[in-house]
Write a protein that binds this DNA or RNA. Structure first.
Lengths: 158, 158
DNA sequence: CGGACTGGGTTGGTTTTTCCAACTAACTTG
DNA sequence: CAAGTTAGTTGGAAAAACCAACCCAGTCCG
């Protein structure tokens, strides 16, 4: 059994799959994009993403349940809430950034789309390196590691 | 009209939304994960992702149509194909990596999941920096830029 | 004061996707 | 020649998403 096999037929339980269960539902990442851009209110998020209001409600609840966003009350009577990124939500940024960078390289067609930039003003060209060895990540850089769950620290080897 | 407004009610046409049209469909990123890990055949991709065979067929066609993967014939009689990442597909890696890193930080629960590592052996800790100024991306680093389409080079300013 | 508007939803009914198990087709292997 | 492998396709059921309309609590305008 090579490291890329699974038990026999069970789907691979990995953190990519786990992350997609929360962030991979339709409209979830677009809602987080809006909050990253400073849009925090239901109506505006609905309009800017194009999500229907009922689905958006459900997504925002899921994201809140997983601690990715939080509701912040900004009016008492009538009670009104804004949606804000938590620390966890703020750390979704690299996903949005690499998606934006990939897409603006590979998905250019006739339709004009809003591009993104780094706050320094430069065109979006993110470079992803390993914090440990400093080398750039590329195809084949990603390897399966050991199984981990709640309290585990990932061991250095074995 | 602030930069985060849209025309009035039209959803924001941006490269994040565009990328999600191809990569954001259910099972697409998991299929790409398998190819990144060296799994190239239909049956094995279906098993390892958990996608049903009909949906997987449809996803692989979409990815192929967008040039993210290509079918490579490995048997002539009967004709059989493997699925391989193109250059564009290989560049999806940062998305998978940042997703894996986010998830292994924020989604740890009781269920043990496969973790990932960099090929140097270290735990997955990607650092994303701007190629231009070298600074690390963080919340608020992402700004809207100008509209771009097919032949455009993104201008340095204005 | 009454009518329109705002913000954040909820509701019901329709369409789209997805799921699932079974089936096919074209070989190869024992 | 029967069984297995590989890559699908098919049909019907279930789940998810879509959409327009509605609701409610308040504010704003004249």
């Amino acid at each position: 059994m090579t490291p890329t096999d699974t038990a026999r037929d069970a789907p691979r339980a990995c953190f990519i799959a786990a992350g997609l269960e929360v962030l991979g539902e339709r409209w979830a990442l677009l809602a987080l994009r809006e909050m990253s851009l400073g849009v925090h209110r239901f109506d505006q998020i609905a309009r800017n993403t194009g999500a229907s209001r009922d689905i958006l409600t459900s997504r925002l609840r899921t994201l809140e349940d997983h601690g990715v966003i939080e509701r912040v009350q900004y009016s008492e009577r009538p009670p009104r809430y804004e949606y804000h990124l938590t620390t966890s939500g703020a750390e979704v940024a690299p996903i949005l950034i690499s998606l934006a960078a990939w897409s603006s390289t590979w998905m250019r067609d006739e339709t004009p789309r809003a591009s993104y930039r780094h706050s320094c003003g430069a065109e979006l060209k993110p470079v992803m390196t390993c914090a440990e060895c400093g080398e750039e990540f590329r195809l084949g850089s990603l390897m399966l590691g050991p199984l981990v769950s709640k309290g585990d620290a990932i061991p250095a080897d074995q």
